[in-house]
Design a binder for these strands. Structure first.
Lengths: 127, 127
DNA sequence: CAATTAATTTAGAATGATTATAATAAAATT
DNA sequence: AATTTTATTATAATCATTCTAAATTAATTG
C-alpha cells in the first residue's frame, strides 16, 4: 500500500459521512497540498478492486465511498440524505432462496426522513 | 403523454432486458429514424420523475432502465450480468424495524452466475 | 552503493455520458 | 385562425472520469 492509498483508505474508512470524490480530494489536500485529483481516482479504484471500500450510488447524487463494515442504507426520497442503519441480516434467507453462488447483498431502503416529513406535512396543511 | 414518451415507456416496460439509453435509442430509431438522443434522455427523465420506470445502476456498467413491477436483482460479480428475481417480500419486516417514513426498498444480490462459476472452477483445476 | 527496473504520481488532454440552450415544430388553448 | 404552451431537434457546453506520457519515487539487483 502506497502512502496515498493508505491515506485515502483512512479517510473513507474512518468517516461515516459517505464522502464524494471531491470531498476526499479536499481532505487529502489539507495534508498534501500538491496532490492531484487523478491520484484520488487511482487509489479509490485500487481500493475498490481490493474490496477494502465500497461505492454507494444514489440516483441523482454523485457517487459516494463507504467503509466495508456490514450495514444497510436509508435514503431520503425527498432530500437525498443518506443514513447508515443495520437491518436484520438476510444472508441465510437469501442463500436458502437462491441456491449456490451467493456472495453478498446490497439493501437500500427509501423513506422520508423526519425533517422532510415535517416539512411536507406543513405544506399539506396549507393547501 | 407525448408520442415519444409513450414509445419510450413501452420499450422499457415490455422488455425484461434492462436496456441502456443507447439501446433504447436504437429501438426507437427503428420506427422513427429521425429521432434524436436528447429526446430519449428527456423522456426517460420524465418517466423517472413520474415513477413509471426505474433506473438500475451497477458498478462499472452503464445505467439501465427497468419496468416498475416489483422485483429484485441478481448481479453476477464476475461478468456483470443482471437477472430478475423475486425474493420474499421485506416490506413488513422493514416497516417494523424502522418505524414511520418507509417508502420502498431496493435489493441487489451479488452472486456468481452458473456460467462464471463453471469457468472459474475450470481455471482452478488447471492451477 | 549504484544502476536498473518497476510502480506511482503528476499534468493535462481526451473521452463519454448527460444536460443546457436556442431555434423549430407540434400540440393545445382561446 | 391566432396565440400560447410544450416537445423536439441540433448543437454546444459541462462534468466526471479515464487515459497518456513524462516525471518522480520506490524497490530490486548486481
Amino acid at each position: 500500500m502506497t502512502k496515498y492509498e493508505k491515506e485515502v483508505f483512512a479517510i473513507v474508512n474512518t468517516s461515516c459521512e459517505h464522502l464524494t470524490v471531491e470531498q476526499i480530494f479536499q481532505r487529502l489536500k489539507e495534508r498534501h497540498p500538491k496532490v492531484v485529483l487523478a491520484t484520488v481516482y487511482n487509489n479509490l479504484n485500487k481500493l475498490l478492486e481490493e474490496e477494502l471500500i465500497r461505492k454507494v450510488s444514489i440516483e441523482g447524487m454523485p457517487d459516494r465511498y463507504d467503509r466495508m463494515e456490514k450495514h444497510d442504507h436509508l435514503v431520503c426520497r425527498h432530500c437525498g440524505k443518506l443514513a447508515d442503519v443495520t437491518f436484520k441480516d438476510l444472508t441465510a434467507s437469501l442463500r436458502e432462496q437462491m441456491g449456490d453462488g451467493f456472495l453478498y447483498y446490497d439493501l437500500k431502503v427509501y423513506y422520508l426522513c423526519p425533517e422532510c416529513r415535517k416539512k411536507l406535512d406543513e405544506q399539506d396543511k396549507k393547501e
